[in-house]
Simulated assay, not measured.
Amino acid sequence: MISDDRIILGLLALVLAFVFATRDRPGWQRFYVFVPIILICYLVPSLMTTFGLIDVSQSNLWPVAKDYFLPAALFLMTLSIDIKGILGLGNKAIIMFLTATVGIILGGPLALWIVAQFEPSIIGSGDTAAWRGLATLAGSWIGGGANQTAMLEVYGYPLEGFAALLAVDIIVAEIWMVFLLYGAGAHERVDRWLGADSSSIAKLRDTMADYTESIERVAKANDYVLLFGIT
């Protein structure tokens, strides 16, 4: 029904505005516990396309987003990294971050190898090869949505398959988050059961919390203008 990019952009903005306006309201907070906010941001526009409300076959919104907004987002994300502050957290923090990153990078090839032992056809080849899609997942789990989109462009995975990967990304992350939250609430019992000494982790947690609080500030209009100009 709608193919005008200006109206499509307006509808996307309305979806985001609705999510941000309701996420802190008591009734909606309970809803977002079971339906993640990020899923709504992806799902509603997808439904608009699926049911023919918007037609994006000739839209230029995606080229503009990937050519202009994506590089800007990646630049701003790296601009905010305090290398000196990260190094100041100590060796254990750095080892923890690197271990998680290496685990994600190695997990993809390992998963492909295991699946290939049972059903090689699933792995695919060419532009639809499964490794291209898993590269976007690795980008997301290491550096968030901006990195995931960057990997999508670098490895040229089809957008049709990318929609399914977004669902996998969100669902797996939310399921894993349930276990993390449960473990965080019962970590003392788990530590006693395993005989683990978590004092260094507690110290690291407090150090990172203090560091985050020390650099936190409320952005003003002047800050936004300066960031826009630098970007």
Rank of each mutant, 00 (worst) to 15 (best):
W113F: 14
A202L: 13
G52E: 02
G124H: 02
F118W: 12
A202C: 10
R217E: 09
G156N: 13
I123M: 15
T101K: 13
S200G: 07
Q58V: 08
A202F: 12
L227W: 12
A150L: 12
E119R: 15
G85P: 05
L47D: 00
I230G: 04
A72K: 00
D197P: 00
V64Y: 08
S125A: 11
C41S: 03
G229P: 15
L204Q: 06
G27A: 10
F75Q: 12
L12A: 13
L53W: 11
K92I: 04
L11E: 10
V178C: 08
I95E: 11
L61F: 01
G133A: 06
A146V: 04
L226A: 14
V102R: 11
I86V: 12
I2V: 08
I81C: 10
W141S: 07
I175T: 02
P36N: 00
T101M: 15
F20P: 01
L227M: 14
V225Q: 04
L16M: 12
V19E: 01
L180A: 12
A100C: 11
Y224S: 10
A167E: 02
G88C: 13
V102F: 12
G27S: 05
T149N: 07
E174Y: 06
I230L: 10
V115R: 02
M1D: 05
I94G: 11
M48Q: 00
V154L: 04
N91C: 10
E216W: 11
P26F: 08
G185E: 13
E119K: 15
K84S: 15
A164Y: 05
I54R: 00
A21I: 04
K220M: 13
N91M: 13
W28S: 11
A146F: 03
L152W: 08
E188W: 05
V64E: 08
V102T: 11
P71W: 13
D191S: 05
N147H: 09
T78Y: 14
G133N: 03
K84N: 11
M1Q: 07
K220Q: 12
L74K: 14
D24F: 15
A221S: 13
I105G: 12
V178F: 06
L87H: 14
E188D: 15
V154D: 00
A130V: 00
G185A: 09
V225L: 13
S3H: 06
V218F: 09
A219K: 15
L87M: 15
G161R: 02
I175Y: 05
R205K: 14
A173W: 03
S59P: 01
V178I: 10
L53S: 02
Q117P: 07
L137F: 02
K92H: 06
I38S: 06
T49N: 01
L98M: 13
